[in-house]
Structures are given as structure tokens and as C-alpha cells.
Computed example of a mutant assay.
Amino acid sequence: MTAPPTASAVIEEITALGPFFAVRTHPSGTAPPEPWQRFTRALLEARVNGVRDSLAAMGGRPAGTVELRVAASVAHLGLAARLVSPALAAAVLHGRVPAPRLAELRWQPVLGAPVPLSLPDDAFAGAPAREPARLAELLSDRLLNGPLTELADAMGEFSVSRHILWGNTASAVNGAVTMIASARPDLAPRIRALAALLHRTPPLRDTGTSAPNGAFRRRSCCLIYRAAPDRKGPLCGDCALSRT
């Protein structure tokens, strides 16, 4: 009987998929050493403000002219992608679903790139699951109703609707699926089937639609177009407002 892969082996394989999948580990229950931080309210607020200033600068606008909820939505989408991507990769590759709460995660709140992310070293403990329906159930319970709900609660304080926040999360799932399928075409059928199940599970149910060719269209907008002058910025490819 083949021994299950170690946590370090799982992490090495998912990290090879790209920067949105890269994770490290830290001893569970320990205080974070510098430069690692907890996901605190103060740091999330600082990130929203940093994204706000960055979006304003890209549009040639004065700092702070971008709506706070727009910056919060964009910040949320990036963080949701970082939480979703490694979890989906570990699930499809090894049937493992990490289960840390947001307070147990560690990050480095840098701007301009996928944030460095660290999981507690027991995050991949437990027996693996192989059935797609069971994996979707575990992802819903441990990921969507765990740290992603906590992240949505925190970002909702910046006047972003839950409709948009869960649309962002659905978009992050689709983005992770696209990256996994591109890096590992052999995994494409399994990860797309898993994502389809996950998109039919609360709280992602009714957040988007999928075409037979796998194209995903969300039923909300992340609002980034509103950061441009006159709120006439480009739309994302999966945006509900896009006519393409």
C-alpha cells in the first residue's frame, strides 16, 4: 500500500503550478515571526487603502478618489484567489482539503503580486477524499464556510455587498481552474468537474453560469471598471456587464 504524500510533498507539487498556488507552512498555534502577519482588521484596512491609492494612480487620479468599496472588492478578489487556488490544487491532486481558519493563516501584505501565504503545518492532516462530490462538500465546509466566509465578513465592512463578494469568490475558483488546466492538462477534466460541483454549492450557488465549453460568466461585477476616470474602465472577461 502506497504511503500518502507528506505535507511538504503536497506543497511542492501545488506550488509548481504558479505563484497563486505557492504556500509555505508554519508551526500550528505559534505567533508569526517577521515578516509574517495574521489577517487582522488593521492590516486588511491598510490593504484596501493601498489598493485604493494604487488604482487611483493607475488611472491618473488623485489618491483617495476611488470609491472605498471598489478598492475593497478588488483587494478581496486577490486575497480570495490566494486562498482558493492552493486548496483546489491540493484537492484535485491529492484529495486533501486544508482546513485552517483565517486567524491560523499567515501572510505578507505586499502589493503588486500574489501575497506570500503560509498554512499551519497540520493543515493537510486527515484522510484524503477521492470522490468529486465528497471533495466539493469538504471544500464548501472547510474553505467556503471557513476562511472565505471570514474574509467576506471582514471585507463587507467596507460597504461591499455579499453578492459581489461571493461573485468574486466564484471568479477566483474559475481562475484557479483555468490556471490548473493550463499547467496540467491531464487534470483539466477533474478540476472542471470539481469546480462545477462547487459552483452549485452554497454560498456559490447562483453566482455565475458555465457554458458547455467551460466558459464562466459571473452574475455580478467586481467593480474595478469604476476605478478608471469617469468610471469607464475595461471589464473583466467573466463580468456580468460584459457583452462579449
Rank of each mutant, 00 (worst) to 15 (best):
P114K: 02
R47S: 01
S73W: 07
V110S: 14
M58G: 11
I14C: 07
M58P: 03
G18K: 08
G78D: 10
A75C: 12
L77H: 03
L55G: 08
R101C: 05
A99Q: 12
E13I: 07
A91R: 00
V110R: 15
V74Q: 05
E12Y: 09
V23M: 07
E12S: 15
S118H: 09
A9S: 12
N49A: 15
R82P: 04
V23I: 11
T15D: 11
Q108K: 10
P109G: 02
R47G: 05
P116W: 02
V70D: 05
Q37C: 07
G18R: 08
A63G: 04
H26L: 08
G78V: 11
S28N: 13
M58A: 11
E67R: 12
A81P: 08
E104R: 14
A113S: 07
A63Q: 14
L44C: 08
A99M: 13
W36L: 01
P19S: 12
P32E: 00
L68G: 06
T40H: 14
G64T: 12
E13K: 14
R24E: 13
A87H: 04
V48E: 08
W107N: 03
R101S: 13
W107V: 02
R61S: 00
T6V: 05
H76W: 07
R52P: 04
V92S: 03
G112F: 00
P100S: 02
V97F: 09
P86I: 01
A81Y: 02
L105P: 06
G59N: 03
L93D: 02
G50C: 02
V51I: 10
A7S: 15
L44W: 13
A7M: 12
E13N: 11
A63L: 14
S118G: 08
P114G: 04
L83C: 00
F21C: 09
L77A: 05
L102G: 04
L111W: 07
T6W: 10
R24H: 14
V74R: 00
L44E: 09
S8H: 12
G64S: 15
P62K: 09
F21W: 06
L93Q: 07
L111I: 06
A99S: 14
G18E: 02
A75N: 13
V66E: 03
P62C: 04
A42H: 10
R101Q: 15
P100M: 03
D53R: 13
L77F: 04
W107M: 09
T30A: 13
N49Q: 15
L117D: 08
L117C: 12
F20A: 04
L117R: 10
V66F: 02
G112V: 05
F39W: 06
P35K: 15
A75D: 15
S54P: 03
R106T: 05
H26F: 01
G59D: 01
A42Y: 12
I14P: 13
L68F: 00
A42R: 15
V92I: 09
L83K: 06
P109S: 07
A87M: 01
A42L: 13
L79Q: 08
H94N: 01
A81R: 11
S28T: 15
T15C: 10
P19Q: 14
S73M: 06
P33Q: 15
V10T: 13
L93Y: 08
G18Q: 11
L93G: 06
L17C: 02
M58D: 10
W36E: 01
R101I: 09
P86W: 07
P27M: 05
R47L: 15
L44P: 00
R47Q: 09
